[in-house]
């Protein structure tokens, strides 16, 4: 103990002190590193190993190399799942981004009961997804659901919602928008709070109107935060599982079978874990590529 204290007082520069201690701080990370290794790194490596096998739960397994991957790329069911995931993800990114930006701008104003309004706005994001999904399912009932009653009130024809192949994905996207717009709002609101006020004063003197100030000051300054929100939204939309599984389980038919549902069915309904592991690896590669691309975009946005 004393020796340590002496070394500190002896080392004059801050840098040297930090270097002396860096080693010791490593011990703080060890327990977490062990857990991360066991529950996060090990599964990744083991997944790659399993994906090279023809492996059925409770059955025989044999080494097949890349066969699962080759099979995957000629599997039309997987191809359709990819397309549906793409469709679902694009819609589930665009709408929450636009609405979240609008909501953030609104909540950036001071108004009475703002705290309460904001809390209510973020409730959908915090609520238990399964519980929420069950109540949504009840509102979609074609004859007795409250949503068709609402449509009738504004003079629109009733919809089949989740019970028709044409409307099931837009309906699920609607829930996703309801669910995750609050997170986009919070991330952008955090950005708005950090904006400097000087440019606005300068713009006011120059006679800029509200829209011009938004278009030429707010939006560019906000860009880094919008990109972060975009990255998080893309990843979360790709990860969507709970709501889809609880509400449709991929149906009707396979009209809402996204990659996650396909993956779940392969692994835990057909017990085809080898094939499912290949899906995990491909899916993970896609997510990682997307995250890298978006992070790269973020760097570029920061520079300009």
């Amino acid at each position: 103990m004393m020796q340590q204290a002496e070394t500190i007082t002896a080392s004059s520069s801050k840098g040297a002190r930090a270097r002396n201690y860096a080693r010791h701080y490593g011990w703080f990370i060890v327990p977490a590193a062990v857990v991360v290794l066991a529950v996060i790194i090990f599964p990744w490596i083991f997944t790659i190993y399993v994906s090279a096998h023809d492996w059925h739960l409770g059955g025989a397994r044999s080494w097949v190399g890349f066969d699962n991957y080759i099979k995957l790329f000629s599997d039309s069911r997987f191809g359709w799942a990819m397309l549906r995931t793409l469709f679902y993800t694009v819609l589930s990114v665009i709408f929450p981004m636009i609405l979240g930006l609008a909501a953030a701008l609104a909540f950036n104003h001071k108004f009475p009961l703002r705290g309460l309004a904001r809390t209510i706005f973020i409730l959908p994001m915090m609520a238990t997804p399964v519980a929420v999904a069950l109540v949504w399912t009840m509102t979609f009932h074609p004859q007795l659901g409250v949503l068709n009653w609402l449509l009738a009130q504004v003079g629109l024809p009733p919809s089949m919602w989740i019970y028709s192949a044409n409307t099931v994905i837009p309906t699920l996207v609607m829930i996703e928008v309801w669910h995750w717009t609050p997170l986009v709002m919070l991330l952008i609101l955090g950005g708005l709070a950090s904006l400097p006020i000087d440019p606005y004063e300068a713009a006011k003197i120059d006679g800029a109107n509200g829209w011009q100030a938004f278009r030429h000051i707010t939006l560019p300054l906000l860009m880094p935060f919008i990109v972060v929100a975009l990255i998080i939204r893309c990843i979360d939309a790709l990860k969507a599982f709970d709501t889809i599984y609880v509400i449709t389980q991929g149906g009707p038919g396979s009209a809402s079978e996204t990659i996650n549902i396909f993956l779940y069915l392969q692994a835990f309904a057909f017990y085809n874990v080898g094939y499912a592991s290949a899906v995990v690896v491909v899916f993970f590669a896609i997510i990682l590529a997307l995250a890298t691309l978006l992070l790269w975009t973020r760097q570029r946005v920061k520079m300009t």
């Binding site: 529950v39 399993v50 599982f241 996650n260 692994a267």
Partner: peptide
């Protein structure tokens, strides 16, 4: 780099950990 590793855990779907952990 350790922080980035944690971030990757954040972006991967929970489902992808299930097969290996289930087998284990």
């Amino acid at each position: 780099r350790a922080a980035a590793l944690i971030l990757i855990a954040r972006i991967t779907p929970g489902l992808s950990y299930l097969i290996p952990l289930f087998l284990l």
